[in-house]
Amino acid sequence: MAQIHPTAIVAEGARLGAGVTIGPYATVGAEVVLGDGVQVGAHAVLDGITHLGEGVQVLPFASVGLPPQDLKYKGEPTRVEVGPRSVIREHATIHRGSVSGEGVTRLGAECLIMCVAHVGHDCVLEDRVILANNVMLGGHVHIGDNVFVGGGTAIHQSVRIGRQAVIGGMSGVERDVIPFGSCMGNRARLIGLNLIGLKRRGFGREAINALRAAYRGLFLGRGTFDARVALVTQELGEQAQVAEVLAFIEASTRRGLMRAGRQAGDAEAEAA
């Protein structure tokens, strides 16, 4: 049986799994589906076509599934999906998808969305993504598995963040970040690899050394970037993690690839 506080409002049509708890003054809309063991805190708001997986926690004053901040949106039946055991902390906001994307904002399993973070429409977060306090994601951002985004960071719409990357706090990210990369700054720039994350996730010395060599070849070598990509492909392209980085680079992008060192916007930002 679900445990629903008498002051909560659960609309007719909402589907609640076994062991769901809904706190004081929370609101659950008619098209919301809550998996087994979901916990909804006081004053939280769940609306729209929103599906929360087993064991998800939504803490007080968070909102999930409200309309996107997109002037083109006219009430179309878009949705939000949150994977099992994810945690959405106080005052965080996750907006449903828009017709300009695939119509869904999706979080994977075991994500942690800290206080006052915002996940914009049509974003896709894979498994175990952590957004620290006050992170802001524009629409259509795609973040791979095991990425950590530091507090106060803003990520431009349509940016891709490869898996196992780490973004330093207070960064402004406007270009794609390679898998396993580490970046920071305003505007953000690559500063190396996420070595701590690689070691914590059990990547061996061979894989880490190959990624280091690939990083140096791609971002610190001589010649044109296309020539450096070709050389790294020839010398290291058969190594699995390097191949993943190369595939990420070759994939289509709307924002361009983040490079090492100063970005084009740094001088303008400093002058301002």
Rank of each mutant, 00 (worst) to 15 (best):
A8S: 07
A14F: 01
G17N: 07
G19C: 05
G19R: 00
V20H: 07
A26S: 03
V33A: 14
V33K: 12
D36L: 05
G37H: 00
Q39K: 10
Q39A: 04
H51G: 01
H51I: 13
Q57Y: 00
L59T: 07
L59R: 08
F61H: 15
F61P: 04
A62P: 06
V64W: 07
V64P: 04
D70K: 14
Y73Q: 03
G75H: 15
G75K: 13
G75T: 14
P77M: 05
V80H: 09
V80Y: 09
G83H: 05
G83C: 06
P84R: 15
R85P: 02
H91N: 14
T93A: 15
T93G: 06
I94S: 06
H95I: 00
R96D: 01
V99L: 15
S100V: 08
A109Q: 08
A109H: 06
L112Q: 11
I113C: 10
M114S: 10
M114Q: 06
C115Q: 10
C115N: 04
V119W: 07
D122P: 10
E126F: 02
I130C: 07
I130D: 02
L131S: 11
A132W: 15
A132L: 15
M136C: 03
H140I: 08
H142P: 13
H142W: 12
V147I: 12
I161M: 12
G162Y: 10
G162C: 08
Q164V: 01
A165R: 11
A165Q: 05
I167D: 02
I178W: 01
P179M: 06
P179S: 11
R187V: 11
A188N: 05
G192F: 09
I196E: 09
L198I: 00
L211I: 10
G217V: 04
G217F: 08
L218S: 11
F219V: 11
D226R: 15
A230M: 01
V232I: 13
L236C: 06
G237I: 09
Q239P: 02
Q241K: 13
E244K: 05
L246D: 02
R254V: 14
L257A: 11
G261W: 14
A269T: 06
E270H: 06
